[in-house]
């Protein structure tokens, strides 16, 4: 009964939760307690930048994305910019969606099939080591280099010209190392005995790979795709020299009609502009972009969980 009344005291409760009650017992208890505090502080330091960024962006851009006034909220995303860049960011929103869709359509199958080929159809050896080393290096290359490469190779050398094709291909190049390596890791984690079980039933190599190996690796593959999309979605540098910019959406596949705006590019352009309302629009765009990345994250997690539940 006495313990009951002690634990009822609110101050005691807080002490109890923090473990302070134990901390004063002895030196060992105290050092144990201090270490817990240090770990907790590390976590706070790790997590806080995310909230600072979110707060900073939201404090200026919130009205643009969630406001109910004219040109705010959903209208902000679905109105084209007008004179003096007043209006919404439909050009950038649609442009980013199109760029990401095209880049994914090229980059994801290429890298998934590439990973399948390396892991399932070649033997460990020099070739595999070279490919893995190259993609690791590629994954660490600064995005501006991809932009320069996209410009030199796609825009100039192949005469594709700036626009949605060159832009999305450059983004696809950037996605490949991430998706390739994560897919490889996921495939490697699938036990050999599963492949053998399928082959021993008379399955061909391909149907084993498709129905058993890739399906077992699916959650890992999704994670890689998610990482890659999240990364390229916010890239400005690869698009500066390759995608052009536009106040409208692309109407053609090549030429100036194919120039396309993107959200990161728009953020960069608006934030370098002294006009106050463009600062607000830049932050609004940033907030919208962050939410899009978050939404993709959530959707991919749901898909992955659903497939895993069906499989495992």
């Amino acid at each position: 009964m006495t313990t009951q009344s002690i634990s009822e005291s609110p101050l005691r409760k807080i002490y109890g939760r923090l473990g302070l009650k134990d901390a004063v017992k002895s030196r060992r208890h105290l050092s144990d307690y201090l270490f817990k505090i240090i770990l907790g502080m590390a976590i706070i330091i790790i997590v806080s930048p995310f909230f600072f960024v979110l707060f900073q962006v939201a404090s200026i851009g919130f009205e643009q994305v969630f406001g109910t006034g004219p040109g705010q909220g959903i209208e902000f995303l679905f109105t084209f910019p007008g004179a003096g860049l007043e209006g919404g960011i439909r050009n950038a929103f649609v442009g980013t969606v199109e760029l990401i869709l095209l880049a994914s359509a090229v980059g994801i199958p290429l890298s998934v099939f590439g990973a399948v080929y390396i892991n399932e159809y070649t033997q460990p050896g020099k070739l595999r080591a070279i490919i893995e080393f190259t993609s690791d290096v590629l994954a660490g290359i600064p995005s501006i280099v991809f932009g320069a490469f996209g410009f030199a190779f796609l825009v100039d050398y192949l005469h594709i010209g700036m626009g949605i094709v060159a832009g999305s291909l450059t983004l696809a190049f950037m996605m490949i190392p991430t998706v390739l390596r994560t897919t490889q890791e996921a495939l490697r984690a699938v036990p050999m005995s599963l492949r053998e079980a399928s082959l021993a039933l008379g399955a061909t190599k391909w149907s084993t790979t498709w129905n058993v190996t890739l399906r077992s690796a699916f959650p890992g593959v999704i994670t890689g795709i998610l990482l890659a999309i999240g990364r390229v979605m916010g890239e400005t540098a690869p698009l500066i020299f390759t995608a052009g910019n536009s106040l409208s959406v692309p109407t053609e596949i090549t030429g100036p009609g194919s120039w396309v705006a993107s959200m990161p590019y728009t953020i960069w352009a608006y934030i370098s502009d002294p006009r106050q309302y463009l600062q607000e629009k830049a932050h609004g765009t940033a907030l919208a972009l962050m939410m899009m990345v978050l939404a993709i994250d959530v959707i991919a997690n749901l898909i992955s969980r659903k497939v895993t539940r069906r499989l495992v």
């Binding site: 079980a197 082959l199 021993a200 039933l201 008379g202 399955a203 061909t204 399906r215 077992s216 069906r310």
Partner: peptide
């Protein structure tokens, strides 16, 4: 070899069910 393996089934040392139902 695919025909052969449909006529000769195999059970492995460690249980290895597919990650399916």
């Amino acid at each position: 070899v695919y025909d052969l393996r449909t006529h000769i089934g195999m059970v492995f040392q460690k249980p290895n069910p597919f990650p399916m139902s």
